Amino acid sequence: MATKVKTSVLHGAKDLRLEIRTLPPLSPSDVRISVKTTGLCGSDLHYYNHFRNGDILAREPLTLGHESAGIITSVGSAITNLAPGDKVALEVGQPCEQCHLCLHGRYNICPEMKFRSSAKAWPHAQGTLQEEIVHPGKWCHKLPEGVSLEDGALVEPMAVALHALRRARLEEGAKVLVFGAGTVGLLCAALSKVVNKAKVVIADIQEERVNFAVEQGFADEGLVVPRARPVMIEEKLRFSKEVAEMVGEKIGLVGGTFECTGVESCLQAAIYATAPGGKVMIIGMGNPVQTLPVSAASIREVDLVGVFRYANAYPKVIELLADGLRSKLPGLNHLITQRFTGIESIPNAFEMAGRVKDDDGNLVIKVLVNM
Rank of each mutant, 00 (worst) to 15 (best):
S298K: 05
M158C: 09
Q126C: 13
L320I: 08
G76E: 00
P330I: 11
A89T: 04
Y48F: 15
K316R: 13
A311G: 10
H46F: 10
G324M: 14
K241E: 11
A181V: 15
L101Q: 06
E19V: 14
A83P: 02
V176D: 02
A228C: 12
A297V: 10
T291H: 12
M285S: 13
Q94P: 12
L187Y: 01
E234M: 11
R166Y: 10
L363H: 05
P111K: 05
V160H: 02
E67L: 11
G54P: 04
L16H: 01
R59M: 15
L90I: 15
Y47Q: 02
Y107L: 12
V225L: 09
R300T: 09
K250V: 14
E208H: 12
E172T: 15
P111G: 12
N108S: 11
A89E: 00
G127V: 08
G146Y: 01
V224E: 02
P276W: 05
K357L: 15
D30G: 12
E150S: 13
G354R: 06
S117R: 02
G252D: 03
K197N: 13
P347D: 01
V92M: 13
L267G: 07
F115T: 08
E259A: 13
K87R: 14
L292A: 12
A313Q: 04
S298Y: 06
T3N: 07
T22A: 12
I133W: 00
A119T: 12
S192M: 07
A119S: 15
E208D: 15
K120F: 14
V155N: 03
V231N: 03
R52Y: 10
A168T: 08
A119H: 06
L10F: 05
A125Y: 00
S192C: 13
E156F: 07
G354Y: 05
L129T: 03
T38M: 10
V5D: 03
V243P: 06
L154Y: 03
C96N: 05
G354Q: 06
P144L: 14
F239N: 03
A119F: 11
T274H: 04
I318V: 10
K357I: 15
A219D: 00
F218Q: 02
L292E: 02
E351D: 12
T73G: 13
V247L: 09
S27W: 01
G93A: 13
E215Y: 06
E171H: 06
G137P: 13
L329V: 06
S192D: 02
K197F: 10
V247A: 10
A161V: 04
T22W: 00
E131F: 08
L177N: 01
L143C: 13
S8H: 00
S148K: 05
N348S: 14
F115H: 03
T63N: 08
N53D: 14
D204E: 10
I133F: 04
P24Y: 03
C99W: 01
E235M: 11
E351G: 10
G93M: 06
I109L: 09
V302D: 04
I79D: 02
I271C: 05
K241R: 14
A275C: 11
D30R: 05
V305M: 10
K120R: 14
Q130T: 14
P84M: 12
V134L: 08
V302M: 07
